[in-house]
Design a protein around this nucleic acid. Structure first.
Lengths: 219, 219
DNA sequence: CTCCATTTGTTGAAAATTCAACAGAAATTC
DNA sequence: GAATTTCTGTTGAATTTTCAACAAATGGAG
């Protein structure tokens, strides 16, 4: 567990938990670590929603696959980030999404009950964890607002531009790279991949942007 | 303030706060009540995100208006429900949405700082309020998941059917009524109103559903 | 380096959405 | 209760997306 301390220190769940107490906390929470290979399913839609996930290394995506096989990417998850926390906290029965590994990754799983309901040792840090969870959930809600703001646009072009603007703002520069390949970006924007490629080509010819793979430059 | 106690008891923020302490709590939080007429703006996009809102009577909608004037409805708000809590809790500068009154309504506003940061009187209920906020934010996150699941469908028909299925499930019956008129439903589903009307007509002729205004019956 | 699998860009046809305009129904106002 | 405003459904044309198929470019494995 020790080797993950550097990552865990940066996880929003453990904000303001002193490093020298972190191991004790993890013990009290009965945290466990599981490794997954690329493309493996970390959580499957329909699974019991008991666990909060923390990505320790590697990356994954939160996806929904509908009826016809259309994939919708809700978000990407990188090291220090949490996932499935809303389903665990809201105590809904099952997760309505799947979490799929992008690459080999290590994941920490914590049974949410251990956080929400004070343990018999009365460890005293539960209040801080609950506060941190609240902050995290508020942040996630805002990310969803952004995704909805982007995907509520009616054309591929407008969705793409809205997404790129957000990314530029986040990067603090007109040059930035995105965490998605073309198919993934299409699944995040909820549009057709080939139409997306065509639109990027058109924007390039119009001199609105330059792009090479995952790198973009808004002119 | 007293006349709102019955409503406030049912607000998730005050879950497990005893009724006879509620007035004290409201006082400590410096809660205030403001009334709005139909169509009035309760919060405007860009306003400081300091306050958590609680709808006491009447109803409102959370909307985003883009560049071209397209309205996107994020959700509807009825009595006992909270709004803007994510922006206040995440301590982002400004609210990225507007809240518009559907009808005359009374709204309680609470400065979020008063909840998050324990007051000097050390009232002791802040922990419960933070826990309640966490629960509420988790629930809101799930509602956004549902909206994304619905709007990520590619056709008006699929969006509409996904929405109606959720409503039927929520109502626990194949007969139910929805909280939106046609234009509002279109703005929630992020589709064209006339196309939506056409699709409802088609589904009716196909015998998939019956509908009269806001009332639906899935056959 | 070569082969193979994956990713990206392009195209044209089919399908669906959006847009604008209008008419009838319903609700509200005075 | 008459007049006016709002809401709903319908239509056809223009725009846009989706779908399928393919070729070029890229990247990795052996």
């Amino acid at each position: 567990m020790k080797k993950y301390l550097e990552i865990l220190k940066k996880c929003p769940l453990f904000d303001r938990i002193e490093e020298d107490r972190l191991l004790t906390v993890l013990d009290c929470l009965a945290a466990k670590v599981i490794s997954f290979d690329k493309k493996y399913t970390i959580m499957a839609e329909g699974n019991a929603a008991k666990y909060i996930g923390i990505m320790l290394s590697g990356s994954a995506q939160i996806v929904q696959i509908d009826y016809y096989g259309n994939r919708s990417i809700l978000s990407g998850i990188g090291p220090t980030e949490m996932f499935a926390e809303a389903f665990a906290c809201a105590e809904v029965g099952a997760v309505p999404v799947s979490v799929i590994a992008n690459e080999p990754c290590d994941v920490m799983l914590i049974n949410c009950d251990r956080i929400l309901h004070t343990c018999r040792n009365n460890c005293g840090f539960h209040q801080q964890l609950i506060f941190n969870l609240m902050k995290d959930l508020a942040t996630k809600t805002i990310l969803f607002h952004q995704k909805i703001e982007i995907t509520s646009k009616r054309t591929t072009r407008d969705k793409l531009m809205a997404y790129l603007m957000f990314q530029a703002k986040k990067a603090g520069s007109h040059r930035f790279s995105i965490p998605f390949d073309r198919q993934e970006l299409a699944d995040y924007l909820e549009v057709d991949r080939s139409g997306l490629s065509a639109e990027i080509g058109k924007l390039r010819r119009e001199g609105v942007l330059e792009s090479h793979k995952k790198n973009f430059d808004l002119l």
